[in-house]
C-alpha cells in the first residue's frame, strides 16, 4: 500500500479527498461530542462535574501512546523499505503526538487537584507519560537540529525505533518503582464503571481526536512534499553542473 503512495501526485490526490473527510468526521464528532461531554452526560456520583475532564483527557492519553506507535511503525517502514513518505508521516505525527502527551499531563494534573488534592503525584501512569513526552521532545529535536533533511530523517528513524522499544520498559519499570515507593491509596483501579451515557461522548471525542490526527498527518505530509518540490526547483541555482573533462587514454604526463 505504501509503494502505491510513493508517487507524491498520487498521495496528493488521496489527500484531496481524505483531508476533507477527516475534517468532516472531526467536526461531526465534535458537534455531538462537545455538547454531550459538557452538558448532556451525567455527572459522576463520586467525581461530580470533574468527570467531564475525562472526555478530553482519556482520548489525549490514548492518542499520545498510539501516535508513538505510529511513529515507530513509520520509522520501521522507512528503515526496511527506505520509503521517504514514511519519514514524512512520522515527522508530521511527532508534533501532534507531543501535544497529546502534554495535554494528557496537564488535564490529568488539573483533574488530580480536586480529586486527589494534589496537582501531581509520581503515579506510574503520570510518570511514564512524562517520560513519553520527553521521548517526543527528543524525537522532535532530531528533526529540528539537523541541517540535512535526509540525514535527520534517517537519524529520526533510529530515535523512533529505540524510543518505542523503550516505552514498555519505561512503563514496566515505573509501575515497579511506583508500587515500591508509593502506597496505592490515591488511585483505585475499581473506579467508576463507565456507563453508556459517558461512553458515548468519550467514544465520540476519541474518534474526533483520531480524525484530527489523521488530518494533521495528511497536511504535514503534503507540506513536506511541497517543501521538497521547492527545494528541488531551487537546487540548480545552488549547485554548479559539473562537466568532467573526457579522459583520454593517453592523457599521461610527468
Amino acid at each position: 500500500m505504501l509503494s502505491y503512495f510513493s508517487n507524491p501526485a498520487r498521495f496528493e490526490a488521496f489527500a484531496r479527498w481524505a483531508s476533507p473527510l477527516a475534517l468532516l468526521v472531526l467536526f461531526g464528532c465534535l458537534a455531538f461530542g462537545i455538547p454531550m461531554g459538557l452538558y448532556f452526560s451525567p455527572e459522576d456520583y463520586q467525581q461530580g462535574h470533574t468527570v467531564r475532564i475525562m472526555y478530553v483527557h482519556v482520548p489525549a492519553a490514548i492518542m499520545a501512546e498510539l501516535v508513538f506507535g505510529f511513529i515507530a511503525l513509520m520509522s520501521l517502514t522507512a528503515f526496511v523499505w527506505r520509503h521517504t513518505l514514511a519519514d514524512a508521516c512520522a515527522r508530521a505525527a511527532a508534533g501532534p503526538g507531543a501535544i497529546f502527551a502534554a495535554l494528557t499531563l496537564i488535564t490529568g494534573s488539573v483533574w488530580g487537584r480536586p480529586t486527589w488534592g494534589t496537582w501531581w503525584v509520581w503515579d506510574a501512569r503520570l510518570t511514564s507519560m512524562l517520560i513519553l513526552f520527553l521521548t517526543y521532545i527528543g524525537y522532535i529535536a532530531v528533526w529540528q537540529m539537523g541541517t540535512d533533511e535526509n540525514k535527520s530523517a534517517r537519524l529520526a528513524r533510529i530515535v523512533g525505533l529505540v524510543g518505542f522499544i523503550n516505552v514498555p520498559i519505561v512503563k514496566f519499570s515505573v509501575d515497579w518503582w511506583n508500587t515500591l515507593h508509593q502506597p496505592a491509596s490515591l488511585l483505585r483501579a475499581d473506579g467508576p464503571t463507565i456507563h453508556s451515557s459517558m461512553l458515548w461522548p468519550l467514544g465520540l471525542m476519541a474518534l474526533a481526536y483520531i480524525a484530527l490526527f489523521s488530518w494533521f498527518v495528511l497536511s504535514g505530509v503534503r507540506t513536506s512534499i511541497y517543501e521538497k518540490q521547492i527545494a528541488r526547483r531551487a537546487q540548480p541555482l545552488a549547485s554548479r553542473p559539473i562537466k568532467p573533462e573526457q579522459m583520454a587514454a593517453g592523457d599521461q604526463n610527468g
Partner: peptide, 27 residues
C-alpha cells in the same frame, strides 16, 4: 460545573487552544 468550572474549562479550553492552534498553524 458544580464548583469545578475552573478545572473543567481549563482542560477543555487548553485542549481546544493547543490542538486548534496547531491545526491552524499547519493549515
Amino acid at each position: 460545573m458544580g464548583g469545578y468550572g475552573f478545572h473543567v474549562w481549563t482542560c477543555w479550553g487548553l485542549s481546544g487552544i493547543l490542538l486548534g492552534g496547531l491545526g491552524i498553524a499547519r493549515e
